[in-house]
């Protein structure tokens, strides 16, 4: 996180916000679960927390390629179903020693669609 805060003080060379991708109605994700989406050739797992908040992470576990969207979540973490590696939904960092997952900024728009902001800044959510 600290590296990203430094980035915020000076203009980043990476593009910060471009257009949002509309992934369809938010109701396709049940509360407390995740679903996988293909976006520009990248796989993104979008989670809908029980309070309605959305979170988005890359969908492939860096450990052994497990399907992150099939993981169990709470408000803070998602656990990969294959070997129970845990990742912060906010930062993508693993608390179990795995490589981090990419995070994406994601929101719900007025029409109750999922909007994924992309590209992203690695390791940070832009929300």
């Amino acid at each position: 996180m600290s590296a990203d805060q430094t980035d915020a003080n000076q203009p980043s060379t990476e593009p910060v916000i471009t257009t949002g991708h509309i992934l369809g109605p938010v109701d396709q994700i049940p509360f407390g679960e995740g679903r996988a989406f293909g976006v520009d050739g990248e796989q993104v797992a979008v989670f809908r927390l029980r309070d309605g908040t959305l979170r988005a992470l890359s969908a492939v576990c860096p450990h052994r390629g497990g399907p992150i969207a099939d993981g169990t979540i709470d408000r803070e973490v998602v656990m990969c179903p294959l070997h129970q590696h845990a990742f912060s939904l906010e930062t993508g960092c693993s608390s179990t020693g795995a490589e981090p997952l990419r995070t994406y900024s994601v929101q719900e728009d007025a029409e109750r669609n999922i909007v994924l902001k992309y590209p992203h800044i690695r390791g940070n959510s832009l929300a």
């Binding site: 109701d27 396709q28 994700i29 049940p30 679960e33 995740g34 679903r35 996988a36 293909g38 796989q43 797992a45 969908a59 492939v60 390629g65 399907p67 992150i68 969207a69 099939d70």
Partner: peptide, 16 residues
């Protein structure tokens, strides 16, 4: 029982 209950979560890239 839930929307997309059996929707793929498989990363579409080829895994081992």
């Amino acid at each position: 029982l839930t929307p997309g209950q059996f929707r793929t979560s498989l990363p579409l890239t080829v895994l081992p």
